[in-house]
Structures are given as structure tokens and as C-alpha cells.
Design a protein around this nucleic acid. Structure first.
Lengths: 245, 245
DNA sequence: CAAAACGAAAATGTGCACATTATTCCGCCA
DNA sequence: TGGCGGAATAATGTGCACATTTTCGTTTTG
């Protein structure tokens, strides 16, 4: 009985979990790069073919992305790139405001010398990026600033939570206007916030953070993306699941 | 070639997605009821046998629970009930404090008549539960109070986030001292907070919420669970994946 | 006698073959 | 011609048969 089952070909599965993460990252990267417009359907066979992996890996990655809020799944229909409403973005920024004003207030109350050092270093890094007009670097640093503030609180849960909120709030940026993203999030705001923290002026720091986030969401709300469907093969051009840059 | 493949028996899969949720809920319920002690290994075949579902369903539910932070997975080793450190619990409560003090402050600033009505109704419900000594009901209401506050802010993202934090913070309760849980979370605190909100005293409301959460985490930190392994069949006694109460 | 080593059994991981459901396409009719 | 219905096609969902890895009981050896 077992004899007539076809023999499975010798399979190599050394980096099993690594491949999973690679597929996950590949899709996420395509979204962050703005290649996948809202409403796009992510077909499992097509993704598997493009990323050169089995459909199960794609399926697992999609499920994870759905659970994390990056994608939306409709039973028996497929997985889609969500169309974030301006209202949802506003809500996310609202939650961020609650957390981040509390964060800067706490940092004003109890930051030490190393924290001050890291803050000053980050500000100078951002200034350097502005000076050299390195938009890609500035893009990364702008996000990392908020992560840094959370990490300086020494609360692992807080860092993880804020990281998720940050990716979700920048997702709308990426989906709607990836090319216009970089020149936002003024590093000047960040410098002011750091200055207030170092001066231990909790009231001012909270106010500055509030205005900073309000400015971000306002800037984001003003922009309307031009609808323009994209082929899946084009979206993943240069993006591989095998080796991540 | 296709002829010698064995025919798959006629399968009925009407409630496919419902079964997934049932399995997920069953495991979650077992945890909430304190049946699964920290460190317990959740074996897929055993769970499948106990819950009367296929292993794939169990696997999917476990993956979801891992992603949501309820369980911890070690590659090739299995899925385990996490042993939350007191420090982690403290961190979670710390994040909750940041969010919930902001929530009550906001509610003081902008709550309407229906919100006031719901708050008063909830307090009276809790009082009723105390009067009738309905511990199970009080347990549920204590958690729902915090959810209610978030929902009254009208921010969907905030509600979802806080719901996750709440389950994670009560998980430690459930895992360590399920039988002692009910008599905590004094409804008196809740009543005071509501009174401050209705009086629009933001400062007082925030302070009361802060003290309330500090009291919870302190009470929780003081308790040390007695280690006592439990068989998996016993843990799921009376818990079915087919029909959820 | 303890500890390392070997082997059997069980558990996890993964590709695949279907079933089921959705979508597309084409002919038909009003 | 335009809408409608059904068959063909493609995509999603799921159980299963393995391969791989771990775990545990037994034996052997210093």
C-alpha cells in the first residue's frame, strides 16, 4: 500500500523559518515601497511564482500579515491591500499621541546621561541627513526617532506596541504617496522635542510632540492618492524572497 | 496516473471558518480559566484529539495565538504557555496607564449625555454584581469597564489595542491565581473614576485611574502561584470546540 | 553506579492532491 | 445590443502523507 505512493523528491529544507521571514519581508517591503496600491488582490499562486517559493509559504506569510493588520482577508475571496481611511489614519495618530506625549513626559522626568547622549546623537544624525540631502536615510531616521523615544523608557511592551502603530501609520504614506514621503516629518520638530526633554520641560515636550503628530496627520490628510492599478510582477520587480537587502 | 490516487472521502465543510474560531476560543478559554499553567506544552496531536478536530485547525489556531502573544513557539520544539514575568506584567500595566489616563482625561473633556448614561449603567451593574456576590459576572464587568472607557472615545484602533493589552494583563491573573481573581479590581475604584469623569475633573480622574492600575499590578505582584502540572485532557474538560458557551 | 550513546516513538514541519468556492468568459435570449 | 445564465477556469481551503527533528526509554561502557 505504501509502495504505490509516489516517492517525494529529496527536499532540502535547511533554512525553513528563514524563508518564511523572507517571504513576509518581501511582501511588506513591496507595500512600504508603495508598489502595492490599496485594493490590490494578492493571489497566492502568482506570489508563489514571483517569489519562487511554495504556495504554503506565501499563505503563511499572508495570514501573518493579516493578523498584524497589514492586509485584509475575505474568506474564500482572497487577501487584499487595505484601503486605509483618512479616519483610520487619524485614529492611529490619536493613539500615538496618547502614548508619545506620555513617553516624552516620562523621559523628562527620569532620563539619564546615556539617554541624553543617544537623543543628541540622533538629532545630529538627522541634521547630517538633511545637510547631505539623503532622503532615504532621513526617511528611516524620522521613524526611528519615535522608536528611540519609546525604547529609552525601558519598556519592551511599549516599544513593540509603538513599532506596530508606527508601521501602520506610515503604511498609508507608503500606499498613497511614497515619492512625497521623505520631505515630511521635519527634523526640526524632532530637535525641538529633544531640546525640551533635555531641559526636562515636560509640559513643553508634550505640547511639541502633540503639535508634531498633529502636523503629520494634517499633512497626510491633505494628500489624495491617484488611483492607478499595478501588475503584481512589476510590484515585486527587484524584490526577492531569497536574499533581502 | 491520477487513477491510482486514493479517492478522498466525501468531506463536509460547511462551517470552516467557524471551526477555526471555535478551536481558537477553546484554547483561549482554557487559558483564561487557569487550566493551562505556564510552561505547559501544547501538543498538536493531543489537542486535535481532545477537541475533535484535525491537526491543521489546531496548528492554525496555535499560530494565531502565538502571533497575538498568548503563546510562545519554539521552532521544531512546540508551542508553550508563556511564563509571564512580573516585570512584563508591570510593563503592560505601565502602557495601560499611559493610555487609560489619557482616555479618562479625554472623556472628561468631551463626553456627551449617552456616554454618561452608559458609564452610570455600568457602575450600577457592577454594584448589582457585588450585591448578589456574582463573582463570575463581576470578573467580566471589571474588564469590560476599561474597554467601555476606550470605546466611549470613539476610536476603533484604541479599543482594539486596549482590548489586547487587557487580555494580556489578565492572562497573568488567570495563569497564576484564577480562583483569587474575582475579589480584586474593586468596583469602588471604578465608581470613583466614573464620578470624576462625570464631574469633568480631568486631573482627579487621571489620578484615580493611575492609582487603580497601580493597585492592580501591586496586588498581582504580591501573589506567587504554586507550580503544579496539569494533564491536557483535564485542562479541556468541559471545553469543546464544537459549541462555545 | 552514573553518564554517555544508541534507537524507537512521537511531535513538528511541509509539499501536495484534492474539494470547494469564486471569477471569467461565452453563448443565448429578450 | 445589452443583460443573463451556465460552463470552463482559476483561486482558495483543507486533509494527508510523508521528511525532519526532538524526546524519551533502554542499553552499554568507563
Amino acid at each position: 500500500m505504501a509502495a504505490l505512493r509516489k516517492k517525494v523528491q529529496p527536499r532540502r529544507l535547511k533554512g525553513n523559518v528563514a524563508i518564511d521571514k523572507a517571504v513576509y519581508d518581501a511582501i511588506r517591503r513591496a507595500m512600504l515601497m508603495g508598489r502595492l496600491l490599496p485594493g490590490t488582490k494578492l493571489r497566492e499562486p502568482a506570489l508563489a511564482r514571483v517569489l519562487k517559493v511554495s504556495r504554503e509559504r506565501v499563505r503563511k506569510a499572508l495570514h501573518r500579515l493579516v493578523h498584524e493588520g497589514w492586509l485584509e482577508a475575505v474568506p474564500n475571496r482572497g487577501t487584499f491591500v487595505p484601503a486605509l481611511t483618512i479616519e483610520e489614519v487619524r485614529e492611529i495618530y490619536d493613539v500615538r499621541t496618547m502614548l508619545e506625549t506620555a513617553i516624552v513626559q516620562r523621559l523628562c522626568a527620569e532620563h539619564g546621561a546615556p539617554a541624553a547622549q543617544r537623543l543628541k546623537a540622533h538629532v545630529s544624525e538627522e541634521r547630517q541627513a538633511v545637510r547631505t540631502d539623503d532622503r532615504g536615510r532621513l526617511f528611516g531616521l524620522s521613524g526611528e526617532f519615535h522608536i528611540l523615544l519609546a525604547e529609552l523608557c525601558g519598556n519592551e511592551q511599549l516599544s513593540r506596541l509603538l513599532r506596530g502603530l508606527l508601521t501602520r501609520s506610515t503604511m498609508h504614506f507608503s500606499l498613497s504617496a511614497p515619492e512625497r514621503f521623505h520631505n515630511c516629518a521635519g527634523p526640526h520638530d524632532h530637535a525641538d522635542i529633544v531640546k525640551a526633554i533635555l531641559a526636562r520641560d515636560a509640559k513643553k515636550a508634550a505640547k511639541l510632540m502633540l503639535d508634531h503628530l498633529l502636523g503629520l496627520v494634517e499633512w497626510q490628510s491633505a494628500w489624495r492618492p491617484p488611483p492607478d492599478p499595478v501588475a503584481l510582477e512589476d510590484a515585486f520587480r527587484g524584490i526577492s524572497a531569497k536574499r533581502q537587502a
